[in-house]
Every structure is written in structure tokens, then in C-alpha cells.
Amino acid sequence: MTLWNARVRVLACSLLPILAMSLASCATTPKAEPRAEMRPLPGTVWINPVIKDFGEVHPRPDAAVQPDPNAEYKVIVDVVHGSDDHTAVLGSLQRLARTVNLLGYAKVPSNHVHIVAVIEGQATFATASNATYRKFFKVDNPNLKILHELKQAGVELFVCGQALAEGGLVDTDVGPDITVSLSALSDFVVYGHLGYSYMQL
């Protein structure tokens, strides 16, 4: 072995631990930054113009982009996000109720508001009857009340038939205020063709 080869070997051996440490640090998943908790200031005003028990809104008559009371609004809402807390109302349904309340706050007449909500994906179990929900989560379904109030406010409620099949549910497992559709995918196509805007919650 020449002196040059010996020096290269020594250098390589000394660099190996450093290289291994660098690779290990690259492979380590960085810790997620803690998310700031959203908390209203004391005394913040909240109102419920349409959906009385859910989706409260904070009045802002000074804010930009206010809904036009004379316009016609057609929206198909993709309710897809679930929750690990099966004892609480889904945040996605609360936001749907807030959408209805915001239009009500803006004085848009109910006959100018056409909202279709398609419940699918992780949110599918929110449509289950109490008996079915208890089989899975050992508690009553906390979402049935908000779904009833949404329907009473004129929101059309569908659950994706494909999602039911994937979750091992049948039509009779679904609560009384929800209609089973062929698929969320085809619902978006059909209602998009009818001029409905798409929104995901």
C-alpha cells in the first residue's frame, strides 16, 4: 500500500462517522410546530340568525366582500373531514352551519340560498343513526341534531353511497334527515352541470 492510499483510507475512515450522523439527522422527521390555539377575546359577540344551536357568526357589517341579498347562491358542499373525537359535532358540519348563518346575517332570503351538502370520506359516520353509531363508538351520534337543523333550514343532505359501502354501512344505518346518493363524485358532476359552485369542508 502506498503512502497516498494509506492517507486516503485514514481520511475516509475518519469521515464515515460524520457522514453517518448527517444521514441520520436527515432521516429524522422534524417535530411539528405547536399550532396556536384560536380563542375569542372576552366579550366577543356571536349570533345565530338561521341555525340556532350551531355555526355561530361574529357580525362584521364593516368587512369587505359581503353577500348580496339580491343574488341567487347555489353551492354544493363536500363534507369530507372527520374527527377522532366521536363525542363531538364535526367541525366541518359546524362550518356548514356557519355558512348558512352568514348568508342569513347578510339578509339573503332563504329562497335565494340553494345549498346541497354531500357527506363522504371520513365524515360518513356522522350520518349514522344512534343505534348504528353506538355499535362503532359506544355513544349516541352527536351530529344528528345539527343535521336536522340544517335540513330544517333548507340544506339538502346526501351521503355518498360508495362511502357507505366502503364503511360497511347500509341505507338503513343512515339517520332520517339524510338521503343516500350514488356517489359524491357523480354528485359534484351533476350539480356542477346545474351551475352549483363547489366548496369543501
Results as ranks from 00 to 15, higher is better:
184 A>T: 03
34 P>I: 09
171 D>L: 11
155 V>E: 00
57 V>Q: 00
196 Y>G: 03
24 A>M: 13
24 A>E: 14
87 T>N: 05
115 I>W: 03
92 S>V: 01
2 T>Q: 06
164 L>T: 05
73 Y>E: 01
177 D>W: 09
130 N>F: 15
107 K>W: 03
124 T>K: 06
64 A>K: 01
179 T>N: 08
73 Y>Q: 12
32 A>N: 12
22 S>F: 06
81 H>Y: 15
128 A>S: 11
156 E>G: 05
181 S>I: 02
166 E>P: 01
10 V>P: 02
23 L>H: 05
186 S>F: 07
173 D>I: 03
46 W>H: 10
30 P>M: 11
16 L>F: 15
43 G>P: 06
32 A>F: 10
113 V>L: 04
176 P>W: 11
96 L>E: 02
130 N>M: 15
65 V>P: 05
115 I>R: 05
41 L>S: 06
154 G>I: 00
23 L>A: 14
34 P>N: 05
46 W>K: 02
14 S>P: 01
79 V>A: 01
153 A>S: 11
138 K>R: 13
140 D>P: 02
95 R>K: 12
103 L>K: 01
187 D>V: 02
57 V>C: 00
142 P>Y: 10
120 E>C: 15
132 T>R: 07
125 F>T: 15
44 T>V: 10
166 E>M: 15
162 Q>T: 08
156 E>F: 02
143 N>W: 11
174 V>C: 01
117 A>L: 00
65 V>K: 03
40 P>Q: 12
180 V>A: 03
65 V>G: 00
31 K>Y: 05
128 A>T: 09
149 E>N: 08
37 E>G: 09
166 E>T: 03
97 A>G: 00
103 L>S: 02
141 N>W: 13
63 A>H: 07
181 S>Q: 04
191 Y>K: 11
188 F>A: 05
18 I>S: 09
184 A>I: 10
123 A>P: 11
84 D>K: 11
127 T>E: 13
89 V>R: 09
91 G>S: 06
88 A>G: 09
98 R>F: 10
49 P>M: 08
174 V>I: 15
139 V>N: 01
27 A>F: 15
161 G>P: 05
1 M>P: 09
6 A>M: 14
80 V>F: 11
59 P>G: 12
95 R>E: 07
183 S>T: 04
161 G>C: 12
111 N>I: 01
16 L>T: 13
173 D>E: 02
117 A>F: 09
128 A>I: 14
171 D>H: 13
80 V>G: 00
146 I>G: 10
170 V>E: 02
43 G>V: 08
117 A>G: 10
104 G>R: 11
33 E>K: 15
116 V>W: 08
177 D>Q: 12
99 T>A: 11
173 D>A: 04
72 E>S: 04
74 K>Y: 01
92 S>E: 00
162 Q>L: 09
141 N>R: 02
84 D>R: 14
103 L>W: 07
137 F>W: 09
39 R>A: 08
63 A>C: 06
109 P>H: 11
81 H>E: 14
190 V>A: 09
140 D>G: 08
190 V>I: 12
163 A>L: 04
88 A>V: 12
93 L>T: 06
68 D>W: 07
73 Y>K: 00
107 K>Y: 04
17 P>A: 06
10 V>S: 09
179 T>K: 08
59 P>L: 08
6 A>K: 13
153 A>M: 03
185 L>W: 14
13 C>I: 14
143 N>T: 02
20 A>Q: 12
201 L>A: 06
